[in-house]
């Protein structure tokens, strides 16, 4: 006999309250996780979208990419010896739109014109992140920069390329050198799974390590991830507390069931079935709501909730719920039939 189902059917309100709390906590977790991921994309999509590989910057830059200056001979040596390697630089700056309004951008330039990792830009041209379209900038617009003598013509747009919460502006290496009065590139990127090479004067970073050198990225992500995991832990504790309260109310019943010969294992199965049922229903609803939120969230809001993240968090919720319910169920093992009988009517 399915005792778990019978109890849920009879005590709908009680289980609805538990389910709605799990739903609200998981929905909040999914939304915060979506925001964390969205902010992460907003902060470093330029780097995150690059394939797996190694980043190199000078040792004396103290892990700050915009203080790094890789000398030309070292750069040439790496680029000649390593296929697909590309040297590039990133600098925060401004572009003036045709209406002379200043727009904050992250200028990016690269050396390897054959590389598919960065677009090939001719002198006097610029390719912008598509978010600039919303600011009224169109293909063919001529943009200016206070340190640049000519005009940069918008040649096209790329999707989701941001750095440090600013839209990326890809420019030609000579234009970059003119704007920033520099000859050297900041970084070299070598795509592939190979282990990092030792290059005199340079320090290597994996993608994850490099992301953590970006100012604010680590602090921002750590805070948001901490909120997400706290919510996961809180939901586990909620499960434990709710099932504990329900179990305390049912101690007498458990005792009587044990007295008539029901197996303790069956009582645990009853509790687990209820926990899995409530969690799955709540998770399905919160996944649906978070995906709807994903669709209707304002365009400017950095929100990105992937299937993988949702799936991973859902599994964690199930495991935490299971642990919480099981810990509270230890009372079931301890229940003495005799005590329950002496307690009176259940």
């Amino acid at each position: 006999m399915n005792l778990a189902w019978k109890e849920m059917k009879k005590n709908k309100a009680r289980f609805l309250i538990l389910g709605s709390i799990v739903f609200l906590v998981s929905l909040l977790t999914f939304i915060i996780s979506g925001l964390a991921n969205g902010l992460s994309q907003d902060n470093a999509a330029l780097i995150k979208d690059l394939p797996k590989g190694q980043f190199y910057m000078t040792k004396d830059s103290d892990q700050t990419y915009n203080l790094s200056k890789i000398d030309a001979s070292t750069e040439d040596k790496i680029l000649k010896n390593t296929q697909d390697a590309v040297a590039f630089s990133i600098q925060m700056g401004f572009l003036n739109d045709p209406g002379e309004k200043q727009r904050s951008v992250a200028f990016v330039t690269s050396t390897n014109t054959k590389s598919k990792l960065f677009p090939n830009i001719k002198k006097g041209e610029v390719v912008l992140d598509s978010s600039m379209k919303d600011k009224g900038i169109k293909i063919g617009d001529a943009l200016t920069n206070n340190q640049y003598s000519g005009k940069l013509t918008v040649k096209g747009f790329v999707e989701q390329k941001k750095f440090s919460h600013a839209p990326v502006a890809y420019i030609n290496i000579n234009d970059y050198k003119e704007i920033y009065r520099v000859k050297e590139m900041q970084l070299v990127f070598v795509p592939g799974d190979k282990s990092p090479k030792h290059i005199t004067g340079l320090q290597s970073f994996s993608k994850k390590e490099f992301l953590n050198t970006i100012p604010s990225f680590n602090a921002e992500q750590m805070s948001l991830n901490m909120i997400v995991w706290f919510l996961v832990i809180i939901s586990g504790m909620l499960f434990a507390i709710f099932f504990y309260m329900m179990n305390v109310q049912k101690i007498g019943l458990y005792g009587i069931l044990k007295a008539i010969g029901i197996k303790t294992r069956k009582l645990f199965q009853m509790m687990w079935t209820q926990m899995v049922f409530i969690t799955i229903i709540s998770l399905v609803l919160s996944i649906a709501f978070s995906q709807i939120f994903n669709l209707v969230a304002p365009k400017g809001m950095p929100f990105s909730l992937t299937f993988e993240t949702t799936f991973l968090l859902s599994i964690v919720f199930l495991i935490i719920g299971f642990i919480g319910a099981t810990l509270s169920g230890i009372q079931i093992r301890k229940v003495e039939p005799l005590q329950a009988i002496q307690q009176g009517e259940v």
Partner: peptide
Amino acid sequence: IRQIRASEFGFVFQFAHLVPFLTVEE
């Protein structure tokens, strides 16, 4: 002992101690 209680013994207590979410038949 549980097996004996389940199959060979019957219990009636001072209070009925019925399972609140089951019908009489259940």
